[in-house]
Design a binder for these strands. Structure first.
Lengths: 247, 247
DNA sequence: CGACTGATTGAACCAGCTCAACTCATGTGG
DNA sequence: CCACATGAGTTGAGCTGGTTCAATCAGTCG
């Protein structure tokens, strides 16, 4: 597997200040839902100067568990999986990062997880040192980062409850409902949920095996709770799903 | 069960400015490992003015999942369990808070978990609004809070890996080793680990049943990896435990 | 002493896992 | 255009780690 970053020193010039959606941060589609939403236009320009738009192909690594955290990232397009691995290959996916999500929130000196692109991904990348310095005299941005961290922590606790105490069916239902809600934050509300990640990723996120995920989805489809479509799922009975999710 | 707070409006006068270890914050045993460690002496005095030392008896509730987060807490003595419950009674303990730990770190408007004293507990309690105001012009304290939140998040991720992918034996071993490390931060390093929480609490923390926890401890004891003592465990083979924890 | 609470142990069970076969696209090169 | 890999997903059949249910044990308190 290609584990190198795209658009590094050798390729950086291709990307710098070359925003995907022309107009830079001010026109960024995910600005308001991202940490940048806390910034004034003048501050945005300053931030833009230390940012670097970078693209990652599917299955390439943004950063590796345990490596020095030289960069922090704001995702603008695509989906990233964040995971920890055990020496024998067991893997737990901590979450799927979507556009608007910030990677490196904790600002710690080493990455706690590995991040890999699932789809083609675009990010705003910042040198951590530059970003930390930028924050220094912007307590409102630090507050925003802290809010995001608090939200992450809350999600992590929900996930602990899920992993420790829920059944396979409840896990899969919660996964679908939560993903729907997250998509709704960055795009139109829809009952058709794209699943860019494979079944193995879903399994490693829910603490199940790929077979159990497959069987559970089939079961939900048999009872007309969902309809399985190519690369996604349509939620037919939110009622049933909500019941499974809450319980 | 008594779910009322000790030392509230009716009893507050008994506690206010009546530090357990005389001398107030400046002499606080856990100050340096707590969020207060980031403060100057003059700032400490100001903080002390908005704090209220409060005691909780075992099995009393500090706050309830979903309630308005009117207070934040800094634990100075005792052990607190933090958990989420499902409507049918299933419970997941998110963590055990020890002296030096801060509750309400995320500063969100509602508590995400329930907090209950396991042992007799003493805390410094702050009105959240007063605490947030106090922070306003102290970015170094906010940075400290953010560091703590990042650490919490990292622990939560370790716990997700544990819950999703580890065996009962690995879970119990990790629990003991981690608890040993946390005790060592606030007291002398020791191979004898107090277990103030019951087996059911350990089970609900590790995503197991009480019987499996008991059987696993018995197994570790049979093979001389640990020695079970009243209200605790002595770690006999850190080597074996570390091996189980890493794997 | 009896009553109660927490912990341990045993035995049967089962949700989810393992192993294996099969399906269904998608791709590829002869 | 077809033969044939290749990879992701599904399905089946049997197994097992951990649960469930139940009995026993060990303190502790009144």
């Amino acid at each position: 597997m290609d584990t190198s970053e795209q658009c590094t020193a050798t390729a950086g010039h291709q990307c710098k200040h070359n925003r995907s959606s022309a107009g830079g941060c001010a026109n960024c589609a995910v600005r308001l839902v991202s940490v940048c939403g806390a910034l004034e236009l003048s501050e945005l320009e300053e931030l833009e100067r230390i940012s670097q738009v970078t693209a990652f192909a599917p299955k390439t690594m943004l950063f590796d568990q345990g490596a020095l955290a030289n960069n922090v990232f704001n995702i603008t397009e695509g989906v990233v999986r964040l995971y920890k691995s055990l020496p024998d290959g067991r893997r737990q996916i901590m979450g799927f990062a979507l556009p608007g999500d910030f990677l490196g929130l904790a600002l710690m000196d080493r990455y706690g997880v590995t991040a890999e692109a699932i789809t083609p991904v675009k990010v705003c990348r910042f040198q951590r040192s530059a970003f930390v310095h930028y924050i220094d005299d912007k307590p409102h941005l630090l507050r925003r980062l802290h809010e995001f961290a608090g939200h992450e922590l809350s999600l992590a606790q929900d996930q602990m409850l899920l992993l420790g105490r829920k059944t396979a069916e409840e896990k899969v239902a919660a996964f679908l409902v939560n993903l729907q809600a997250r998509y709704a934050r960055i795009g139109p509300m829809s009952v058709t949920i794209a699943l860019p990640m494979g079944r193995q990723d879903i399994a490693d996120y829910l603490g199940l095996t790929i077979e159990t995920v497959s069987r559970t989805l089939t079961k939900l489809a048999r009872e007309k709770t969902v309809l399985i479509v190519p690369d996604g799922v349509r939620l037919l009975s939110s009622e049933r799903l909500d019941h499974l999710t809450a319980a």
